[in-house]
């Protein structure tokens, strides 16, 4: 019950202020245009652009989401709100799960925006691969959010905050990034989606591992 209240609080806060959403919307467009210009200047044929699309998409997502998700713990860090939550009997496990869910929803929305803008700018058809790509994207966004939730809690107490977050988060994301890019590349290159693929198993295993690690380590990050 406390978890749902915390999720509701985070989502309501975001819906009222709309800061992260507006920031993510702008960043998605900006990064898409920058990469669109780079791809266009390379004079690649459409087949090569289609193969590049998933990799570019994950690059845009990781950077725009990392710059946005940094704000997710900002309210709790001000006026000792986090200590207040812990004093009210909310466990660090519950805070982690609530943050994970709200970050996943926010990052998922950001991913949809990135996909939409980049697909339009690079003229990529995504409807024919929508179902398997949604599965890959959901698993990747969940794994990303689990790691980002812990990394944000680590970086938010530092003076550097937004500078430190990408430095510690992005290297941890490489296995997730490899799996998502490889699965996406096969899909967009016209290959059939293989549910028994090693990459898909890796993606699921990473999600489970990062969530379990996050649940166990979050306490040490926020209670210190």
């Amino acid at each position: 019950m406390k978890i749902f209240t915390l999720i509701k609080k985070d989502l309501l806060q975001e819906l009222r202020a709309k800061e992260s959403l507006a920031f993510m919307f702008s960043l998605s467009i900006l990064f898409s245009v920058v990469l669109g210009i780079a791809v266009n200047s390379a004079l690649l044929n459409q087949e090569s652009v289609t193969k590049l699309f998933p990799g570019l998409l994950w690059v845009i997502f990781i950077f725009s989401a990392t710059m946005t998700v940094e704000r997710s713990l900002q309210n709790e860090m001000q006026h000792m709100a986090l200590e207040g939550l812990l004093l009210l009997g909310v466990s660090s496990f519950q805070i982690f799960i609530a943050k994970l869910v709200s970050n996943t929803l926010l990052s998922g929305l950001g991913f949809l925006l990135c996909t939409f803008f980049l697909a339009i700018l690079l003229d990529i058809g995504i409807v024919h691969v929508a179902a398997p790509f949604t599965l890959i994207a959901s698993l990747t966004v969940i794994g990303y959010s689990a790691l980002a939730t812990v990394a944000v809690a680590i970086s938010s107490s530092s003076q550097l905050k937004s500078l430190l977050l990408p430095l510690i988060l992005i290297p941890l994301l490489f296995p997730l990034f490899f799996a998502a890019t490889e699965l996406g590349a096969v899909l967009f290159a016209g290959g059939a989606f293989d549910p028994a693929s090693g990459w898909l198993s890796l993606l699921i295993a990473l999600d489970v591992l990062y969530i379990v690690l996050g649940m166990n380590l979050y306490e040490y990050v926020i209670k210190e």
């Binding site: 812990v150 530092s158 430190l164 430095l167 040490y220 990050v221 210190e224």
Partner: peptide, 20 residues
Amino acid sequence: AYWGLRQFGDPARVAAHCAV
């Protein structure tokens, strides 16, 4: 990244954060 956190992390919490 670990070295970056050691250098720029919150001094009061850097030990636990670095351990995580």
